[in-house]
């Protein structure tokens, strides 16, 4: 009886999501598996420094108190009536000098949740945002007239040029991407997918992007946080 219930809970149409880690090649995986070889840890170290120098520790204590936080973001903010990303949550109560500093903070805060399952709450008033994000994920756009779902649901696991099309989950961000030769945000990754279909990317901070990222987080339920991941 309990088994039946569990099955119903975990297998609605879609099977267990598959992390992009499994679609990355052996070299990227090896880099992600070893913190002393993962260049993202240059940013993690910087994040630790900023945690002190920007005064975060003064209120929050050790950065380890952030364990579990990244797994809950994006999080629906009832006052604002929209989902907020972790970056926005930080920026709204503390000035962060530039985007590199923000990446470093996201890396060190995300790392605290590494291995924890994503836990995006889409219940109650958050539901419409989830639905709006889901609609965007399935909406065709751009000169190529492709929806995210065409690639990341229908063609996941197939090859696109040299790359395997992953399911498109956000559980490793910020990531060190070999193509960028740097750490980069989920927004940067999404911009490239949107430009790839010759559509105009959503503006940073837009409602659409917030809803889409919220949906992506919920869609990845069952995966654990991998921050900072390495991707080709």
């Amino acid at each position: 009886m309990i088994w039946l219930l569990l099955l119903l809970l975990v297998s609605p149409a879609q099977a267990q999501p598959r992390s992009g880690y499994l679609d990355a090649g052996p070299d990227s995986r090896a880099m992600q598996d070893d913190d002393t070889a993962n260049p993202a840890f240059l940013w993690v170290e910087q994040g630790k420094v900023l945690w002190g120098s920007l005064g975060c520790g003064g209120c929050h204590g050790d950065v380890a108190t952030m364990r579990g936080v990244a797994a809950r973001y994006p999080k629906y903010d009832a006052v604002l009536g929209r989902p907020v990303s972790l970056a926005r949550r930080i920026a709204t109560h503390r000035a962060v000098p530039d985007s590199e500093d923000m990446l470093a903070l996201l890396a060190v805060i995300g790392l605290q949740s590494r291995g924890l399952p994503l836990a995006i709450d889409i219940s109650g008033p958050a539901r419409p945002s989830y639905e709006a994000g889901k609609a965007l994920f399935h909406r065709r756009q751009g000169q190529l007239n492709l929806a995210c779902a065409n690639c990341h649901d229908d063609l996941a696991g197939r090859h696109l040029g040299g790359a395997v099309i992953p399911e498109g989950h956000p559980n490793g961000y910020p990531i060190y991407r070999l193509e960028w030769q740097a750490l980069g945000s989920l927004e940067r990754r999404l911009r490239q997918c949107v430009v790839g279909v010759r559509a105009v990317p959503w503006a940073d901070g837009s409602r659409e992007l917030a809803d889409l990222e919220f949906f992506l987080g919920a869609r990845a339920a069952g995966l654990v946080v991998e921050t900072p991941a390495v991707r080709p």
């Binding site: 040029g161 040299g162 790359a163 490239q192 790839g196 080709p232």
Partner: peptide, 8 residues
């Protein structure tokens, strides 16, 4: 050497 699909 294969190329990545998405580029800057």
């Amino acid at each position: 050497v294969t190329l990545a699909a998405c580029l800057d």
